[in-house]
Design a protein around this nucleic acid. Structure first.
Lengths: 233, 233
DNA sequence: CGTCTCATTGACACCCTTCAAACGAAGTGG
DNA sequence: CCACTTCGTTTGAAGGGTGTCAATGAGACG
């Protein structure tokens, strides 16, 4: 199944810990789950770092996150990785133009998803225009986010990227001036087109500047949202 | 109309030359033009660097390129610009999730487009599921390209970016081992997240390495496609 | 308490940017 | 036909931001 992931750089070794639990967690948890798209799906659980689908695999399902966080990404032959998006509970991922996945998807944390057969969705989109329109809107929304991401990757410096990331996550995981990061520094780095060291240095600098405090490496407390938002803009 | 483009860096001054011809060229050329999306549109011409729509404006139309090239982009308050995509004849642009444009669009060269009323398209998508499905596919295709672009911006060096760009353009503008670039170095730089100087230096280096020749700054002749494709991958 | 993984911090290198100047092509006017 | 201007491109020199390499620190777990 892993056609493209033959020669991966040493960094990706963390992925191996999923193999040990893969066969167990990949079984469906419940037979059916009602979905907001109006198509029945199958509930699945994935362990941390377990692959949900891989680049080059046939695109049979579309997924909706129930619990946990999922990342989609692409990798170059030498192991450089670009995380395209993080998907939080309620988010839908795995929609593809063709019948092959162009990105890979993995569980950032232990997570539950509903898997919806792609052809069920397409059939419904063809018969029910309302559902089709909803899917289109969803894709347009993804495209808009993707274009924003391109602006960040192409034109913003490390500080602005991190500030943007924190503001974006804070918006998606609402909590009063406090943010629990669901992903590692490496994930953030690969999302922002930086290295883990730069993420770390930038975070501590934001702390030194009095914009945030870091009770632990996964927790961020906002102390000056206004300035952060200005940096992120 | 230009709500967001108040304080732009000096670099954007080239845009002013469109103003002189804007009122003339903006008139419809023909009343109606059959479109592959099955909705009638109005043919328009735009001068080089003329704005087709701006960030923040209401999204009333979707466009199809007939002649010339269009760029869509976003800019930061200090003038940094990220070109999201170049649209060639046959391409469709201007589709938005909401009723407001999140990017701006300008004519790279003098160009003709068909403008299709957005609500006509949406109405048709709602009544004709086939058309709706086509629009969805189109958006998914854009999303796929956008994710590839993110990988380039986030993880590739200057050489790889330029090689990728040249290979991509060569694929979209087919001609035997020869490519006529429709856009300036500045456009390429802003598309690839680099500076104009880096683009120039990289191009001459590719020439020195025997991979391309540059008869003029807009013309590229491919001498070693294999190596270029390896760099681009 | 030892091990493992991930995060932080430091020193240094390098790729790309910045600033500056020269170059070339196209257009204009004498 | 030739100066002159203008705009875009090329080239050079120097600096800075981020990457690389390496060591240390901090939790989690057995």
């Amino acid at each position: 199944m892993h056609t493209q992931t033959a020669a991966i750089a040493p960094r990706q070794t963390f992925r191996t810990d999923a193999a040990s639990v893969g066969t167990i967690s990949r079984r469906p948890v419940e037979d059916s789950a009602a979905d907001p798209l109006g198509v029945e799906g199958v509930r699945m659980t994935y362990a941390r770092n377990e692959e949900i689908f891989g680049e080059g695999e046939p695109s049979t399902c579309v997924y909706r996150v129930l619990k946990g966080v999922v990342r989609t990404y692409r990798i170059l032959s030498d192991g450089r990785r670009q995380v395209a998006e993080f998907y939080l509970p309620g988010d839908i991922f795995g929609l593809e133009a063709g019948d092959m996945h162009r990105t890979s998807a993995e569980a950032v944390s232990t997570c539950e998803v509903t898997a919806i057969r792609r052809h069920h969705l397409v059939e419904r989109a063809i018969s029910d225009c309302g559902a089709g329109h909803k899917l289109w809107s969803l894709t347009l929304h993804h495209l808009r986010r993707s274009e924003e991401h391109m602006l960040v990757l192409g034109r913003k410096n490390a500080c602005e990227r991190v500030a943007w990331f924190l503001m974006d996550m804070a918006e998606r995981i609402p909590a009063h001036d406090r943010l629990e990061l669901p992903m590692s520094r490496q994930d953030i780095a690969d999302f922002l087109g930086l290295t883990i060291e730069t993420i770390s240095r930038t975070m501590t600098q934001l702390q030194d500047d009095g914009l945030i405090t870091l009770p632990s490496c996964r927790q961020v407390v906002f102390r000056d949202r206004r300035t952060l938002e200005d940096m992120a803009a």
